[in-house]
Design a protein around this nucleic acid. Structure first.
Length: 463
RNA sequence: GUCCCGUUCGUCUAGAGGCCUAGGACACCGGGUUUUCAUCCCGGCAACAGGGGUUCGACUCCCCUACGGGAUGCCA
């Protein structure tokens, strides 16, 4: 059996898109589970729109998310001779010809065809003119006029195209540069690619590319056209709907593994399982099981997956993932007596690392503001705060048990419901009614800081 | 317009003719645990696009319609 070779072939006209990550992921997984090769090819034949920055972004992001290619990525812009050579072969074998129709002529032709209810396509008028190459000519493929092309798609089954629906596509532009279709086909052959896994927006390109393959005498490839990742309006996911580039999701505090998990589950599933790591995918993923219909990207699913992946991290792993987000906030995570206890108590406070870092602020920084609704609800007066402050001031042993005992005693002595006592203190300590258990919170903040914060709130209420 | 692809809860999906009173997950709502919040646990809401066939029987097969998407570039 032939070794499977897949490839991800982005054009560097933007940052790495999460739809692209998904395509790359499926290519990667398919290669790995078949003991094959995963390759990357930069399709930068569009000189206008391609840029090196985008190329770097794509390569860096793919590699940091763990989708490393098995060979050095290649750039189409550096392989011109190869495409020219292939085009010569096509000219010599009579499978391609020069055409001197101007863009204006073509445009006019298309308009007329549309006006008369026909499919707009090049009519092959230069096909038998025997023109030579010039500054005004493009090279076109002489596509067979009769018969069908059958695309055997792993996900969709047989897709049949009539050759009469296909026109003679351009292989070489008038400036002599090769186009997407030619480069794509030649490189797939040159790189030894066996399996093309790409977005379904390429379905209608496939018969054209097969014709080029046939003309060049290349072997047939296997195809799998993935359903697209859509926005909430069912149109392909773009910046209009949500963040699209991988790095934006990372910056929000989503784990790579959670992003991969969510992307893989978009269009594929396995029993009742929801949590998949890359290794699980290599074990369980089956390209044949991929859904045919496009899938809407739902951020709440990512949020949930992230919380699950976060929960699966060991404390040390969790801390090292969290650290950069705290650093961004000028918080040095280790600069706290009870880091581990604190982090453990707070690690489920939000779905993202960014959110968790934010909820950790009161433990490292001064309280910026108080939750007004909480104040209205629990602080009609200062009395409890003042009482508790006095009691804490006189407390010798600053540990959870001692603190809890004081709180409990005060509450029973005055016959007060627990929240009535605790919530005001919480507000003083964290600015809101949210915190780990109160004794714990007081304990880790320390006596001086706790009392200082209670005093601050007393002053705030008093004013 | 033409060609191609698609259509199960709000969302991701299970479902290969009887296992479907259509299952799971997220979201949402309710309850429990938690001195608060989050986590966690329990419960609830909610879908086969429509119409024709085929069949004893159709979410599953066929046809049509509707709707959505993609392609129709000297972009990739």
């Amino acid at each position: 059996m032939k070794k499977i070779v897949t490839r991800f072939a982005p054009s560097p006209t933007g940052t790495l898109h999460i739809g692209g990550v998904r395509t790359a992921l499926f290519n990667y997984v398919y290669a790995k589970q078949n003991d094959g090769l995963f390759l990357i090819r930069i399709e930068d034949t569009d000189k206008e729109r391609s840029s090196k920055e985008f190329e770097k972004n794509i390569l860096d992001n793919l590699s940091s998310i763990g989708l490393n290619p098995d060979k050095k990525p290649i750039n189409q812009s550096e392989r011109n001779e190869i495409y020219i050579k292939a085009s010569k072969q096509l000219i010599e074998s009579g499978k391609a010809y020069w055409c001197d129709c101007s863009p204006e002529t073509l445009d006019e032709m298309r308009k007329e065809q549309i006006a008369s209810g026909k499919k707009p396509m090049y009519d092959g008028r230069s096909r038998n003119l025997g023109l030579e190459q010039s500054e005004k000519t493009v090279l076109r493929l002489a596509t067979p006029e009769d018969g069908d092309i059958v695309v055997n798609d792993i996900i969709r089954g047989e897709i049949i195209f009539k050759n009469s629906e296909l026109d003679d596509l351009i292989l070489l532009r008038s400036d002599g540069s090769p186009t997407y279709h030619l480069c794509n086909v030649v490189d797939d052959f040159e790189q030894g690619v066996t399996s093309v896994i790409r977005g379904e927006d390429h379905i209608s390109n496939t018969p054209r590319q097969i014709h080029i393959q046939n003309a060049l005498g290349y072997p047939q490839l296997e195809y799998a056209h993935l359903p697209l990742v859509l926005g909430t309006d069912k149109k392909r996911l773009s910046k209009r709907h949500a963040a699209t580039s991988l790095e934006e999701y990372r910056e929000e505090g989503y784990l790579d593994s959670a992003i991969i998990n969510t992307l893989a589950r978009l269009g594929w599933s396995k029993g009742d399982n929801e949590i998949f790591y890359l290794d699980d995918l290599i074990k369980d993923f089956n390209i044949k099981e991929v859904q045919k219909a496009g899938a809407i990207f739902d951020i709440t699913k990512l949020d949930w997956a992230n919380s699950q992946h976060l929960a699966n991290l060991s404390l040390d792993e969790f801390k090292s993932h969290l650290r950069p987000f705290l650093l961004k906030n000028d918080i040095d995570i280790e600069n706290h007596r009870y880091v581990d206890l604190l982090i453990n108590a707070m690690r489920s406070s939000d779905n993202t690392l960014k959110g968790i870092a934010k909820s950790l602020e009161p433990y490292y920084k001064n309280i910026k503001s108080y939750d007004n609704r909480a104040i209205d609800k629990f602080l009609s007066d200062n009395n409890i705060l003042i009482d508790i402050k006095e009691l804490l001031l006189n407390l010798e042993d600053w540990d959870v048990d001692s603190i809890d005992r004081i709180l409990k005693t005060y509450q029973t002595d005055n016959n007060l419901p627990v929240p009535k006592v605790n919530q005001p203190i919480r507000i003083a300590l964290t600015g809101s009614t949210k915190s780990p258990s109160l004794g714990f919170t007081l304990c880790i903040l320390g006596k001086d800081l706790s009392i200082k914060r209670i005093e601050e709130l007393i002053n705030f209420i008093g004013s």
